[in-house]
Simulated scan of single mutants.
Amino acid sequence: MMTLYGRRGWGSVLIEAQLAYYDLPFRFEEVDDLFTSASARKALARINPLAQVPTLLLDDGRVLTESAAITLHLADLTGRDDLVPGADAPERAAFLRWLVFLVTNLYPTFTYADEPTRFVADATAAKAFRARVDDYAQSLWRMVEHAAAAPWFLGERRSALDLYIGVMTRWRPRRPWFLAEAPKLHAIAQAIDAEPAFAGTLARNFAE
């Protein structure tokens, strides 16, 4: 059985939702707040030196990190192409482009700005840094909005990109901003919320 190290509402929800979707057996190991707990970071660093979630311990003992890598691995493991277009699918190139865009460009804006004092010691400068990063993130989201089709990001075909959008739009700048500034992404997020295959995982992670 695989073990997913994560925290409710954090990036691990992206992988938790896919494991549940594929009906793969796994154990969820909840970690303490990695921003505030040195002991939690030290414990997770024994498995993943970056001490980040998601961290997936495969059933043969190997460690897999980075949500995009895990997303591709789970599709290969199950032999399915309903979340990851196959190598010959016409949507494959766009899928890979925007999956990597989300995780290499947008995801780091949370890494750096969720707790900016980790990188900028002065409190006033840290506040300004967070504001600048958030503005930059919004400019990136506008690029994603421009590329999005309907009803799903790739058009008629639902993919893991839609799950990423459904989860990441719950973080800053949050859904009201997307409704006003990125309506296609907002519609995709709402559609993912309504998908029975993901509803349980999302409810567990984002319960008020």
Rank of each mutant, 00 (worst) to 15 (best):
M2Q: 12
Y5D: 01
Y5M: 05
G6A: 09
R8S: 07
G9H: 02
V13D: 00
I15N: 03
E16G: 12
L19W: 07
L19G: 03
A20K: 10
Y22F: 11
D23W: 01
D23M: 05
E29H: 13
E30V: 14
V31M: 11
D33L: 11
A40T: 10
K42W: 12
A43M: 03
R46P: 01
L50I: 08
G61S: 08
G61W: 06
R62F: 06
R62N: 10
V63D: 13
L64Q: 04
E66W: 06
E66S: 08
I70G: 01
T71L: 11
H73W: 15
H73L: 10
H73M: 13
D76V: 02
L77W: 15
G79I: 13
D81H: 11
D81S: 07
D81Q: 09
L83M: 09
P85H: 08
D88I: 13
P90A: 11
P90Y: 07
R92H: 11
A93N: 10
F95P: 09
L96C: 13
L96R: 10
W98N: 02
V100D: 03
V100L: 15
F101I: 03
V103W: 01
V103H: 14
V103T: 15
T104F: 08
N105V: 07
P108C: 06
T109D: 04
Y112H: 10
Y112C: 02
E115K: 05
R118W: 02
R118T: 00
R118V: 01
A121E: 14
A121Y: 04
D122V: 07
A123K: 09
T124E: 13
K127E: 14
F129Q: 02
D134E: 12
S139V: 12
S139R: 15
S139P: 03
W141V: 01
R142P: 03
V144S: 00
H146E: 13
H146A: 14
A148R: 04
A148C: 14
A148I: 03
L154N: 03
G155V: 07
R158D: 00
S159Q: 07
D162A: 08
D162Y: 10
Y164C: 11
G166P: 03
G166H: 01
V167Q: 02
W171V: 10
W171H: 09
W171K: 11
R172C: 03
P173L: 06
P176N: 08
W177A: 15
F178V: 03
L179Y: 08
E181N: 11
P183A: 00
L185V: 01
I188E: 00
A189L: 05
Q190N: 13
I192Y: 00
I192E: 00
I192M: 05
I192A: 00
D193I: 02
P196N: 13
F198P: 01
F198H: 12
G200K: 12
T201P: 03
L202C: 10
A203T: 12
A207V: 15
